[in-house]
Structures are given as C-alpha cells and as structure tokens.
Design a protein around this nucleic acid. Structure first.
Lengths: 339, 339
DNA sequence: TTGTATGCGTTATCAT
DNA sequence: ATGATAACGCATACAA
C-alpha cells in the first residue's frame, strides 16, 4: 500500500493540493466538475486524510474524551454505567466521532483532565461517572470545552439524569395503591452520589406528602455501592423486632445483597417483605425472586447525553438546559405482590 | 493558559528547540547539565508535547486500537469481556498507552480496520471479541501491526485464552470424584465461538477418556449466548424422560437461563440435578442457587494480553507464543453438592 | 475557480 | 554537545 496524501493525489489528478483540501472540507469555491472528479478518485483509491496532520492544523479531533471514574473500582464492569456508555458510544460513532478514555497519564507525563483534553484537542467530554472531590473536573467544566454527564449534576455542567424525584414518588404510590402497604422502609445508598441523595430526599419528601409513617428503624444505610453493602445494611434492619412491609432499595446492585440476606435468614420475599430496587440492571430479572425495580432507561440516557454533547459541539450558540430529566419506568416482578 | 511549544520553551531556556526534543525523547547527545535544566523547567511550567505533531512526524501514537465486536449486540455490557477489557485497560494505561475503539468510520469516511489503524498510527491492536467472518480482521493480522486477542485463535494472531481443555477435564473429574455422578450432560454453546467449540470437544474427549457414558439426549444446544438460549435449551432437555445427574453448561450467561427453567419446572437444583457453569461472572454468586462454575481469570487474561501486546510493540524481536493458556479454577457453590 | 505559500509542533539529519 | 533546517500532511489566506 503506497503512501498517499493530498500531494500525491494532486499530482495524479493534476490539480492543486489546496483544491483537494477544499473538497475534503466542503469549503471555499470549487467547480462541480472537479469536485466530483476528485471525490470519485478519492473513493476509488481509498484515500483517507491523516488525522494527525488535520489535528495539528485545526483544533478538532472528532474525538470525545470519556471520564469513567474508577472509584467504584470496577470501571467497565459496572452493569449500569457501562451500558449507558455503550449507548452513548454507538450514537456518537454513528455521527462520526470516536471515544477516547481520558487518563491522567499521557505517555510518561501526568496531566490534568483539561491539559489532556487540550493536548488531544477533544471536541467534548463525557463524564460517565465522576468524583465530586476531583478538582480536575471543576477545572474542566470551567473551561471552554463542552462537557456532559450522566451522573454528576454540577453548576456549569450539562447533566442528563433520571428523574429520581418522580421515580421515587411512583414507587411510593405503587406501594400504597397497588401493594396496599404503608410501612415502607428504605436502604439508602452512599450519599456522596447525587443520585442516591436525590432518592433519599424524595423518599422523605413523599413519605411526608402522602402522610406515610416514617420509622427511623426502617431506614438503613448501605456503606458502599455493591452487594456486600446491601447485605450488611439488611443485617442491621433484621436487628429490629419488626420489619417494614415494603423495602425500597436505592439500587439493584445493593438489592442483590438485600435479597441474599433475606434468603439467608429465611425471610420470604415477597410474602414477608416486598422489595423494590432501582436501575433494572440485567440481572434483576434473573435472581430469585426476580426483582421489581424502577428502570432507568440506559439507552435514552446515553443517547440523550450524546445528542446534547454533539449539539453543544456543533451548534455552540443553541442553549441546552442544565439538567435534562429522563423518565423511568416501574418494572414489576416477583419481589412484590399486588394486593 | 498561554500556548507553549518547544520553540517558546527554547526561547525561555535559551537553548535550541532541537535540544529540547532530544531530552524529551532521550535521544542524541545532550549534557547532563542542560538535560536536568530543561527537564526541571518543563516540569515547572507543566509543558506536555503535542501528540498530533508527534504523530505526524513519527509513526507511533502510544495508542492501542480495540476491536470489540458487537455481534453479541451488547458490547460493553457483556459481563465477561468488558471485565477483561477493563483489566487490559488498566494495565496499558499504567504503561503510558491509551485505548481507542476501532470503528470502521472515521469522520464521514468508512474504512477497514487496517486503514483505520494506519491512519491513527496505533501501535497495536487488541481484539477483545471478534467475528470470524470479518474479512477485515484477516487483513489486519496479515499486516505488520501487532495484534493480540483474548477471544479468537487464528493463525498469525497471538491469543491469550483460558485452558478450556483442562478446565473441562477438571469439571468431569470433579463430577465423578466429588459429586460421585457419571451421567453428565452438557448445554453446548454456539459453535461459531472457538471457546465453546473447544469446551464441547473437550467434553466429548474426556467423557470417552474417563469411560463415562455419553447420552445424546443429555446434550442440548443453546442457539445464542444469553439467558434465553439457555432457557430454551433446557426446555429441550426436559422433554426427555430422564435427566442427567450433572449438567455442564458452556457459560454462566446461558446457565442463568438454565437455572430459571429448572426453577420454573420445579426441578430442584442441586438435589435433582446439579449444574456447573463456566466463566464466573459476578452474578454467578448472587443467583439462587448460587452457581458452581469454572472461573476464568479475567484479570490475568487482560493483563497477560496487555503484557503480550506491549512486548510485541516494544521488543519486536522477542518471540511470543501463538497461544498463551491461562489456568481456570473451579468455584464451588450451591448448584452442586458433594456426595 | 484554481494554485501557491505558510504554519501547525514535532523529530531527525546534518552542520557546527 | 548544540544549533539550524528540512520534512511530516493538511488547512487556509492570499494571489493569480
């Protein structure tokens, strides 16, 4: 495969390199005749412009930087976020962009997100999950670079997140109206996560709004994001003499531990206690009992984030809302039983 | 943040741009004095060389292209491969490389893997999962670019895979020696996957070697990679009057469907039939009954693939074996019961 | 409408 | 040991 660039092509086509560049970029004036002639030739010989040269010259790289904080320590293994990322990826790739994971290490150099982005000339940044203690993120969203997130909500950052408030409201309504229960407890997730915080706040808010009795003993706290934390939290719940009738758990991952703890202690779900999770990760339907849960629409989340970011990149003038709320949907399975 | 490049630095340091380049690349002769002086200044002002310019000049981009075939239609959501990728990612990032997903679309152009790689000047390619029908992959491994895979095994392609043969042997030995059962059936996965093919072959080989009776009715075929296929296959198995005593399932994902089917038909696992999976995906321990399975070491797989690829990149002369086999380990849980 | 020249930030070859 | 200079492949302002 012999090398080809606009110069070699120019020679072969007997035009100037500049003209080729113009048709490549749809810029400047060039006659329809030469345009199609060039285009056809390019197609025929399979020429593709070298990105590095392009990047060097212009400021765009057709690349989107991805921040996927690994504080959860599982990164791509996270069943919820990796799915959202997958949908984001599919969408932007279809629009001709590609993804590049932002690392704070470039070759042997260590740099901030912002530096990395400037160095790589990314067109935008997608924060799949981020850490609020991360000063690098503040610096980044203070810059000119478009940033969108499906996790953090922060001033100056465009967020696309599930409507947690409304979701929790629905869960409580369902518990009262369909399950016919009023004693609703909660397994609260780590509050450093905005989503978990919102869910907890909504729980308190609507328990009050609906005049449901809040029993502090029926509220337990998961220390982490996973199975083990759910198991532990449930153990604390089991320390009480009475159980709530319905248990709302902040996330499915935590729910897995909850279910296992109940099972190990011969507590029958849903007959002794009903459990409602949040997320609808794939496993939710495979566990026993299968888990009733509030589905977050991972596809819509990823795609909306993608659309939002691309719009910010390509039409910098159009205003986009700071927060875009995505609807959730209750998926009814075996862990609840309608009265 | 004012722009900086080797010229501005050169001016400020009162040396020539060339000298700076030399210390940056540890090349050519430069006195220890100026070297440290330059290094310190660079550190102080936080200068980082522009990758695009570097790429334009040299052929390396410190980037590894990733092929993650989405034929399974879940991409990053795949619990096994995304985990292997995660470990690969962590390793290479630590070595100063970064990952970039290979797409067959660059901007508005459509190109082959090879073209994309040459255009991006990737240093190597990692095939997480690939498709054997993909002609682009053949072209790629026929090229000069180092390629490694944790899925496909193909001539000219370095593969890092689990030792399926030995794994299946262990499963059968365990069934006979610990479970004390001889009637061992199998749920066979789609044979377009090399791994599934190897597992099936090993099953037949060692059933014979151990003089165990093969009952064709106890061998059923899953049409796909997921839950549903496992469920369906199990239905076929249930059509027979007698069940095997132990059922070896080609993968955990398929096993989930198998377990559910048994549960729906009131077949008690492990008392009526024992089930052994393959992979040890995270869910395996959360389902009921929790799944005995042959663990694939995703961390070792990812890291070994990373090491292999980096070694090919950085020391092109050293020979690496075509296939590196990784040990697996049997994880005993509730779906089997030792006699 | 088309061609020419210059710069983007490096690396590498050659002088000095 | 250090400095000057020519590529690398493209975009673009300007000239023709």
């Amino acid at each position: 495969m012999k090398k080809q660039n606009i110069y070699t092509l120019a020679k072969e086509l007997d035009v100037s390199p500049g003209t080729i560049s113009k048709v490549l970029n749809n810029t400047g004036k060039v006659s329809e005749a030469t345009r199609t002639r060039i285009l056809e030739y390019i197609e025929k010989v399979g020429y593709v412009p070298t990105m590095s040269a392009r990047m060097l010259k212009s400021k765009s790289s057709k690349t989107i930087g991805v921040i996927f904080s690994e504080e959860l320590n599982i990164g791509l293994e996270h069943p919820f976020f990796s799915s959202v990322l997958q949908h984001f990826k599919t969408y932007v790739e279809n629009e001709g962009y590609e993804l590049s994971f932002i690392v704070t290490k470039l070759g042997k150099n260590r740099l901030s997100y912002l530096k990395w982005c400037m160095n790589k000339k990314v067109d935008g940044v997608y924060i799949v999950v981020g850490n609020y203690n991360d000063k690098g993120i503040e610096e980044l969203i203070g810059s000119e670079i478009p940033v969108v997130s499906t996790d953090m909500v922060l001033k100056g950052l465009k967020a696309v997140v599930s409507d947690n408030d409304h979701a929790v409201k629905s869960i409580l309504e369902y518990s009262v109206q369909k399950l016919n229960k009023k004693k609703i407890g909660m397994v609260v997730g780590p509050q450093q996560s905005k989503a978990f915080e919102q869910r907890f706040n909504a729980y308190k808010k609507y328990m009050n709004a609906f005049n449901l009795p809040i029993n502090e003993k029926h509220i337990v706290y998961a220390q982490g994001f996973g199975f083990t934390s759910g198991y532990q939290a449930t153990l604390n719940l089991l320390g009480n003499e009475d159980l709530p009738e319905v248990l709302f758990v902040s996330s499915d991952e935590i729910s897995l531990g909850v279910l296992k703890a109940f099972q190990d202690h011969k507590i029958d779900v849903p007959n002794q206690i009903q459990v409602i999770g949040f997320d609808d990760i794939p496993v939710a339907r495979y566990v026993t009992p299968s888990l009733t849960t509030m589905m977050q629409d991972r596809k819509i989340l990823g795609e909306t984030a993608a659309k939002t970011l691309l719009s910010m990149i390509e039409n910098p003038d159009t205003e986009v809302p700071d927060v875009t709320l995505i609807d959730t949907k209750l998926i009814k399975r075996e862990s609840t039983k309608e009265a």
